[in-house]
Design a protein around this nucleic acid. Structure first.
Lengths: 198, 198, 198, 198
DNA sequence: AATGAATGAGGTTTCATTCAT
DNA sequence: TATGAATGAAACCTCATTCAT
């Protein structure tokens, strides 16, 4: 008589626990034991849900990307063109303690993409998606007449993403002493130039 | 009379070995043993040159910063204003295999600043210096009349650095398939907007 | 259901193994590996029972103190005044091979109290208790009229303990060639003088 | 052309350095490097004067015993009988910071006698000498009529030494909070009883 | 499915000792 | 004689993983 357990949901519990551990204790302290404990289980239980630690971490980071994407989709649905772009990017920027935690994870993700082929592949996929989304909003802006047709969509998307990532890094390096207002002002300066009439 | 060894140069050997190990095997595989072996010694030899592993790693990462700074200083000396800024930033951008390696190190540095207080302190110092240098070139541009006096130096410096760092990340994520020409074109677009006549 | 192991008793196994190792191989050779091996496990198993080596050693040394105390309490219950004192001290004195082993441990304890703050604290506690116990028996002697009220309890307790500890040291130095009879005779001489009618 | 070095005196330098290191840094921190540094040399120099570390330590502890003995001889020469005994023992007792240091060494010596056969042998010799010296003073007391002929010289000497050693231990355990006056008072109580008219 | 004891490899660090100079 | 670089063994500790229950 098998114990009644919702395999998928328990798996999700582990993933969430791994995320929280990554956020609050850092990658180096994200041990299997720590994650299992946070999830309310012991190390041995993991074996039923993940082949090894690496898979768990990958799933956790992926979950993280998924959350971000969902927030993004919500914003995209409600707005369009420049407004959508501004909303999506502003949401991604590090403007509070919570987003600082998010950026810490992203950095862990970048960093560890260097070490695991599978992680790298997944990270690439996420990057492509993120670039694609920005591109689409820029295209929308062109359609709406906010931007001239001559704009180089792909390059602009890349520049935009670079700007955001770079600010994330700075935010961490500055130990969160970078006020949200300043960051948003920088974003607006950036957008004003991009959307400037020639 | 002691065995004839140039202490400083041998120390440098270890630092170089640590760098190479970091670059080629990643931070996780950069063990004391691996570094010593690459340098052609046993682990115990390290003790003559570094207090502990952390110091070795810090020195290795610092070595990169120093190299970068020296290149920067050379460029600053020869040019001024916008031209200097363009040269310095273009040099920092990931445009070839060698700079890809550099960016991998930077990322390691960002990442591990999160875990070691000393490393964080040194990293902050480097960041401040880098921001200061960009700021000075922008001020020069104002003096030269390339930029209006109304420009917010500090915020522009931050935005510039963010742009560069973000492109470094993208370069790594894209597995170096981002052509130098495209990256430089993005830089010029960025500068054109910044230096645009209102 | 977990593997069936009595955590407390297994912990005790390690403590016993540590004691034996200390006794038979000396402190310098009491490595984690050696203790684990003697207990029939590998080093990693220790982590389930002790935070680190220091805690293991402290527990092992404490184990001795506890044993000693329990023997003492038994004797105190059955006797009183001078008789109790004589019995307790005679039991503590090094009169056989087994007590030689005990004294070797005590010396380790004294010695290592010098180097670990926690151990020093625990050792102080044990000393205070031991002094208190002797003091109480002396007070009893006063009440029973065996000793004059003028006796300086605390100083006499200290002297008594010093005498015992010093004999323990001598016993070890003499390589156990000090016959029990001689030692007990010395004790009686000591007590005769202490309890002499003025 | 050999360098002119007084082998014996340099050897003594190392021994003194080892002593000081033992006193000030404790046995565990008495590394070859620490001793050599204190002596103003490097580790490699030791090899010319001592076969290995163990020999160095043994010589250091021996030097220590020798100093103590010399102080004792001086006192013996000037006094006799009970007065001599009192002076010698009072000098040995832990009554100041300096003697605390001495006792720390003695304890190290006791402790490590357990681990090295050679050290044990030398320690035994020192103990015999110390017992012999006390015995001789007691015999003198008998000759001087201070003590009855019936006194058991050897046993009394042992008891005396035990008393002293035990107080040394207590002094260390009490973290030197045992006032000299109290200790000397205890000694006088002890001697008064020993020398009491029957 | 879950436990948690146990394994064992691998990491950093310390240090007595060796040896070319 | 002295140097001090280098060795290499051994210590403690951490942790992913395995497995009997």
């Amino acid at each position: 008589m098998p114990r009644i357990v919702d395999h998928a949901s328990r798996r999700q519990d582990f993933i969430r626990a791994a995320c929280e551990t990554l956020l609050e204790e850092g990658y180096a302290n994200t041990t299997v034991r720590a994650v299992a404990k946070r999830a309310g289980f012991t190390t041995g239980a993991l074996v039923h849900y993940f082949g090894d630690k690496d898979e768990l971490i990958r799933r956790a980071l992926d979950y993280f990307g998924t959350e971000q994407r969902e927030r993004m989709l919500r914003l995209e649905r409600e707005l369009e063109g420049r407004a959508a772009l501004r909303a999506v990017v502003a949401d991604a920027l590090p403007t509070d303690l919570d987003s600082q935690r998010r950026w810490r994870i992203w950095m862990a993700l970048w960093y560890h993409s260097e070490e695991s082929d599978q992680m790298r592949a997944e990270q690439k996929r996420r990057y492509r998606e993120w670039l694609g989304r920005i591109s689409r909003m820029l295209e929308q802006s062109v359609k709406l007449g906010e931007l001239p047709a001559s704009v180089e969509i792909r390059a602009e998307a890349r520049a935009m993403v670079a700007f955001v990532d770079g600010l994330g890094v700075q935010f961490l390096m500055a130990n969160s002493r970078l006020p949200a207002a300043k960051i948003l002002a920088m974003l607006d300066t950036y957008l004003n130039r991009l959307y400037a009439k020639p």
